[in-house]
């Protein structure tokens, strides 16, 4: 790539790898459970906040693990709002996300951001790493790989199968003796645990946590999922997971490329929204176009005037 130097590519890939964990979370809620879970914007920051606070206390690894638990808790709240209080899924997520804004500020000690400069993080912990250049990439790749393998095998277990069936056909899952309330709880807890893990890693990677860093995160995750599916396919489970990861990396590279070309960074969210809009509306647009073509051909053949 002549337009992008190696450092830019490397940092885009690093970001893509870390955000891929978040995208896998979004994949679980949006694709596996078929639930539009907007908790993500809040749970991402929650993970970052927990991780940053523990970093300042000199415990980066504990920060990562606690972030996972905090994310799972946030997802559980959304699931319970939906399943037990019968609030629509999308609204349940928005409510949790809103509540998390205040909670995140509390976690961060009522500061809007926490800088982590000169703090120990998991990216500068190991001294045996082959030079600092690739340390972040190797560590995040290792983590991502572990998450993907565990997720793959989890979705193949007995409980994983009913989780996937819940998104396909809730009625069937209940008819086969499994509580869909429970499967949704497990699914959303898992999804948001991954999202929070990603947030925790991002905070340590870029050495700060900010209360606004989660805005639009769900759309970025969804964009990665859609890009991955479009480019790499959905034929089987392993392929789908790999597609999500590659989708996340492609998304980051595309963004970096656009920035190189001179796009102002403030336009990032707009671009993300447009990408997801375009991808989601593609089937409808295709259908409309072919309908239009059919009508045109019919009109020409009949020499009549279309209505």
């Amino acid at each position: 790539m002549t337009l992008m130097n190696l450092a830019t590519v490397l940092s885009s890939v690093e970001l893509g790898v870390i955000y891929a964990i978040m995208s896998l979370g979004v994949f679980i809620s949006f694709r596996t459970l078929n639930m539009p879970d907007l908790t993500v914007d809040g749970s991402f920051v929650l993970g970052a906040a927990v991780s940053a606070v523990l970093c300042t206390a000199g415990r980066p690894l504990a920060g990562i693990i606690l972030a996972l638990a905090a994310g799972a808790l946030a997802g559980s709240v959304t699931a319970l709002l939906h399943t037990k209080l019968k609030i629509q899924p999308i609204l349940s997520g928005i409510l949790t996300m809103l509540a998390l804004y205040s909670i995140n500020l509390k976690v961060m000690g009522n500061r809007a951001n926490i800088p982590l400069l000169n703090q120990k993080t998991i990216f500068n912990l190991p001294e045996w790493m082959p030079g600092p250049d690739y340390a972040a990439l190797i560590i995040s790749l290792l983590l991502l790989f572990t998450v993907m393998i565990l997720l793959y095998f989890f979705l193949k277990t007995k409980i994983g199968l009913v989780l996937r069936a819940t998104g396909d056909n809730e009625q069937m899952v209940r008819a086969l003796g499994v509580s869909t309330d429970l499967t949704k709880l497990i699914g959303l807890a898992l999804a948001n645990a991954l999202v929070a893990l990603s947030g925790a890693l991002i905070a340590q990677y870029q050495s700060f946590a900010d209360v606004g860093m989660g805005i639009g995160m769900v759309i970025i995750g969804l964009a990665s999922v859609i890009i991955g599916e479009a480019i790499f396919g959905t034929s089987n489970l392993l392929r789908r997971l790999i597609a999500v990861i590659l989708g996340s990396i492609v998304y980051r590279l595309a963004i970096a490329f656009a920035l190189e070309l001179g796009m102002p960074p403030t336009d990032l969210k707009l671009i993300s929204a447009v990408i997801v809009c375009a991808a989601l509306s593609m089937p409808t647009i295709k259908e409309q176009l072919s309908l239009l073509q059919q009508r045109y051909t019919a009109a020409v053949n009949n020499r009549g005037r279309p209505l």
Binding site: F154, K156, T157, K158, G160, L161, V162, L176, G177, V178
Partner: peptide, 15 residues
Amino acid sequence: AIAWARGKPHGLSPG
């Protein structure tokens, strides 16, 4: 497999 597991505990054993 989901039908076969009906009424049995849904653990982390292979599906």
